[in-house]
Structure formats: structure tokens, C-alpha cells
Design a binder for these strands. Structure first.
Lengths: 242, 242
DNA sequence: GTTGTTGGCCAACACCTGTTGACCAACGCT
DNA sequence: AGCGTTGGTCAACAGGTGTTGGCCAACAAC
């Protein structure tokens, strides 16, 4: 199951002269973290007065590569997502991937630059924080393949796990910090929240376990919302036994 | 980080004439699912009156292979756990793995024959089921490397995901069925339970996220117990909005 | 002693991987 | 025109992978 079948894009395979393929779903996060890509000559366009990118012709190719990489990483994991397959999906040569992103690790780093844009915390009533978070995460995972790729690779690769950990620490921990008053309990409550949140993402978007995928969005919000609410705001007093 | 370091076992590397290496932790599940292993001659010992296995000399080797395979699969995932590395850990030649288990897939199938032996359901009071389940799963994951291997591979491989799904369906669903009266809600409640349970296992044993690994066993039971309790036994009435 | 089976090692095969360097077609300058 | 840069292809390399077949030592049976 590895050959002769272009996944979903790259409708025509032979003509690959000009860019503008079908994809480019959500802005593609082009400029971020290109890191390793050193081409032959010098970079630095001859004269750019403003600091904005001069909109090269290859930007479409870069975006196509990142799109294909996200899809492959999310679907197949790090090892099985070969550079050749990604390049084939993007309609270009594998060496282009190397030239733009240095190596496979750099490609992955550029492909998953996740921004779990957690919304305004103070505008929701305090007893609705759990449900709001669940609903937000549900839409986020559904519309963003990078998260699935990040989680899937994080479970297989040590470096991927570290990157996932970074994302959670930098973006999820502030939410807990803003919600929980006692600074000594922040790490504990963040751990609890992460347990339930990643469990939902894992079973629903990575493993795709049928009983979980059957649940509707409203059911999940109704059931998991109170859980997160409790993990975030409930006082921890009732100890069954010490 | 792939070479020249025998993981934990196989103390002496050169002499490998007789078996009886150090390992063989927990019975090793030898007879189960050997499937593909066809050796050169015919199997079938010349005369075995009783149906019990005649205790071959190679059983120690088989157990060592399975032990090493479990460890490698749990630590490195399916792709990175190479047969050569597993064989090196077990102190034998890679071709032995092939002869005994046919191919890598057969080895994995034999290595993860999981039995999440869920305890007596009726003996615990009904309002303690959640806490009991959490405590049981915690000990199970800690003492059993196969579960980590199964979950890690399940996230990377489609076949692994299916096997994990089988295990959950056959062994976790009966618990929910025995706990929940309404048969129409069984799948939903099983999904909820699986969400929280696998989330704990993922973050604690696969990703090893520091805030989660810092939590003590008692804290986890105290916090996640009520969650499972609610997922299993609470009536689902309070709908925020339809 | 001879013979057959078992347990094991060794060397290779075919394939796939990431990665590299050489080469080439446009296009923008001056 | 001439030239440099950009975007891209092609063919290969070195290394690792699963997998296979041939050979060998020990032991059991006749």
C-alpha cells in the first residue's frame, strides 16, 4: 500500500511547470521556521525596503510541500511518511524538499508550527470554561491537520514528543494559570486537563476508535465539559484515603 | 543513539551457546499466536501422548525474543524497533526471529497478546467503580510493557490500531456492559471511558509529559476516579443546548 | 557409528530510505 | 546580447531494512 496511488491531490501528474495547485487550505504558515533551507547562492533579495517577504515565485511550491507533508505525517506518522511520497503529492522532486527544508527533521518542524489559539479567557462565565475549552479543542482538531500530525509523531519519536510538550507548555499552561488561583496547583491541574484533552484527540483523530468517532460534538461538550471544569476549578479536598 | 549499546539484557555478548539468559519476567505468553513460524523440517514431535507442549530447549530463546521485542516496541515504536536490534538484545541472530515468528508483523502480534485482567466487578460497591478502575489501570500499565508497546504502535500503524481496538472492544466493553443498565448507552459510555483512560496512559507512559508523571497514584485515583464514575453511572440529562 | 532433527550463525539479496551533486530551462537585469 | 539568479529535474550514493538460504554443532535414535 505504498505505491502508484497519489493520495488526494496532484490530480495531473505530468505537467508540473507552474504552481497554483488545488490546495493551500488555511494560509499554510509559510514564513515560519524555515531554518535549514540553504540554497546554492546567497539568499537576501538585492533591495527590500520593507521587511515583508518579497513574495517569491516558489512560495506556492513551499506551501504545497508543507500541505503534503502535513497530510502525510498526520496519516502515516514520521517514519512511513517518506520524503519521496511527500514530494510526489506536492508534484515536485524530492530534492526540492531537501533544498527548502534542509532535511526531514526540518521539514517536520516547518510543517507543524502549531498555534492552538485559545480564545479570550475572561469573556466566558467562570462555570462555562470547561465546556468552552472542549468546544474550542473540537473545532481546532477538526480544522487543523497539524495537530494530528504532531500528536501522531509525538507518540513515535522522542523529538516529536518534546515538540508536543513545548506546545502544550507554552500554550495550554497559561490557560490553567489564568483559571486556577493557587500557583502550587497549576501543574497538577494542567496535567489533569492534558490527560483528558489528549485522550480525546488520540481516540478520535489518531486511532479513530469507532465508539468515540460516533459521538456528536454536543455529546462530547456535555460530557467532557464538566470534567475539564472540575479539573480546573474544583477544590481538591475529598481524599478517599491518604 | 542506535548502536553499540545492548539495552539492558544480554550481558555477555560473545558466548551464546546455551540459553537461560537472565530475563523471562512474567511467563512471557509463549504458546500464544506463533502463527507463521515454519521451520525447515516438520514440526509435530514423534509421539506426544498428552496435549501439553513438550518443553523444547528453544523456549528460552523464544521468551527472550519476545521480551526484547516488547521492550523495543514499547521504547521505539514499530518502525524504529528493528529486528536486528531485537535479536541483539535477545542475544541471538536476526534470522532466528524470522524462523520463529515468520516476519516482523508476526513477531509484533506474538509480543503483544494483551490481557487487561479487569477484576471482579460485583465485589466493589457501586460508587467505587470509577476509583477501582483507575487504580487497576495504573498498576496494569506500570507492570506491563506490552500495553505501552500496543498503544505506541497503534498510533503509528493502521494494523496496530486495529489490534488495539480489538483489545478494547473485547475486554473493556464488557465492563461497561456490566455497569451500565441501558444497552443503548453502552457504546457512548465506553467511548467516554476510553477517552479518559487512554489519555492517561498516553500522557503518562508514552509521551511521559512531566506534569503528568509527577502526579502520584493517589492523586490520579482521586481525580480521575470520579470522572470514570460519572462516565459510567451518571444519567445523561443535563443538556446545555440541543 | 550413522543418521536425522533441532538450534543457531553467517553471508548475502533486493529494496527502500534520506541525501547529494550535476545539469538544465526560464526569467530579470544592465 | 550576455549574465546571474531562481526553480527545478535526474541520476546516483551510502546506509539500513526485512528477509532468505546455506552451512554447522550438538544431541537423540537406531
Amino acid at each position: 500500500m505504498n505505491d502508484s496511488k497519489p493520495r488526494s491531490k496532484s490530480g495531473t501528474d505530468s505537467d508540473s511547470t507552474s504552481g497554483t495547485r488545488s490546495g493551500a487550505k488555511t494560509g499554510a504558515t509559510t514564513g515560519a521556521a524555515q531554518g535549514g533551507g540553504r540554497s546554492r547562492g546567497k539568499r537576501t533579495p538585492p533591495a527590500s525596503s520593507s521587511a515583508a517577504a518579497p513574495a517569491r515565485r516558489s512560495d506556492a511550491t513551499r506551501a504545497a510541500i508543507l500541505d503534503a507533508a502535513r497530510e502525510r505525517f498526520a496519516a502515516d506518522g514520521y517514519e512511513r511518511a517518506t520524503i519521496r511520497a511527500i514530494a510526489r503529492d506536492a508534484g515536485i522532486d524530492p530534492s526540492m524538499v531537501m533544498r527548502y527544508y534542509g532535511n526531514k527533521e526540518g521539514l517536520f518542524a516547518a510543517a507543524v508550527s502549531v498555534d492552538l489559539k485559545i480564545p479570550d479567557l475572561a469573556s466566558v462565565p467562570r462555570d462555562r470554561i470547561g465546556a468552552t475549552l472542549v468546544a474550542h479543542f473540537l473545532t481546532l482538531w477538526e480544522e487543523n491537520e497539524q495537530l494530528t500530525a504532531l500528536l501522531r509523531v509525538g507518540t513515535a519519536d522522542a523529538a516529536g514528543a518534546e515538540r508536543l510538550q513545548d506546545v502544550l507548555r507554552e500554550q495550554l499552561l497559561p490557560v490553567v494559570r489564568a483559571t486556577c488561583p493557587d500557583p502550587e496547583q497549576i501543574r497538577m491541574r494542567a496535567a489533569l486537563v492534558v490527560t483528558q484533552t489528549l485522550g480525546l484527540a488520540l481516540t478520535r483523530h489518531v486511532l479513530r476508535l469507532p465508539p468515540v468517532t460516533e459521538l456528536t460534538r454536543d455529546e462530547l461538550v456535555a460530557w467532557l465539559g464538566p470534567t475539564l471544569q472540575r479539573y480546573l476549578t474544583a477544590p481538591h479536598s475529598a481524599w478517599p484515603e491518604a
